[in-house]
Design a protein around this nucleic acid. Structure first.
Lengths: 138, 138
DNA sequence: TCCACTTATTAGTATCATACTAACGATATT
DNA sequence: AATATCGTTAGTATGATACTAATAAGTGGA
């Protein structure tokens, strides 16, 4: 019945974030590069891409992969949560590197709405601890 | 090689928390009661229990299930994270019920050490929004 | 004592995410 | 043309999750 669309796994999250961050100006990314970034073999990466395609988050042709509009939104929302949580952790006394890897564990689970509320509570910083901008609205 | 001990799945988390909260004074819990609480059939619940046993977190005999000392520690640490995150969300403006279900999504992923730092940052409340005590140390 | 009920357990099946190797095809480079 | 690179397919494997059906084992009542 329900195939749990709009629920995302950790691997899918990593793939979305890779596509968002490593291919800025609407440029496609090559499959083997995605595979290398995710540290998996190409068939495994392709498998992840296929799942993203089924969820309407990515499109691919001849190994060129791009995010759809919907995928871009999801990726940006993940980055919002990521940088918000990172900021919270750093303000609490966690090291930058530690904060980043911890954030990756939860940024695809925590809803963006909650992150925005947390962001306000911790003083609405404009940049994450690494100096990257925290996305405003979608 | 490494079988990912001390990493826990969502179902295992639910099972640990059920055992911790629904069977206080070292009393065993019946399998069918666990199954009902988790809203799964008994064989499914048994399967989860078996995984917890393999990880050294639970023990069972004739359908009587208890947490091991190790399992108790893990469960308490999950509750610490749960109530900390719940408190953070509520302070940020999220409703109690929403905060509770959101917290369950991440409380088994966020390390207790981080939760303690966050707890300090948000003013070291002694109780979660529901009025339950936030565990001190392990 | 025998039957019915509850409970636990086993066996078997299914799905989904993850990941690999091996093999094949296409393209590009030397 | 030979080689290297890349994508893709096929096949296999594991682990978590979940189910049904069947069996076992105990309890309580008629």
């Amino acid at each position: 019945m329900e195939s749990n669309t709009n629920v995302i796994t950790r691997r899918e999250r990593d793939c979305l974030v890779t596509l968002e961050e490593d291919s800025p100006k609407n440029f496609p990314m090559r499959l083997h590069q995605i595979a290398q970034t995710l540290r998996v073999k190409p068939p495994t990466a392709l498998n992840v891409i296929r799942r993203l395609e089924r969820k309407g988050l990515a499109e691919s042709k001849d190994g060129m992969v791009i995010l759809t509009e919907s995928g871009d939104k999801v990726a940006k929302s993940i980055l919002l949560v990521h940088r918000t949580y990172e900021s919270l952790l750093c303000q609490s006394g966690v090291s930058e590197n530690s904060a980043c890897s911890e954030a990756a564990e939860v940024d695809y689970i925590i809803p963006a709405g909650n992150a925005r509320l947390i962001l306000k509570k911790i003083g609405s910083p404009k940049l994450c601890p690494h100096g990257k901008p925290i996305p405003e609205e979608e």
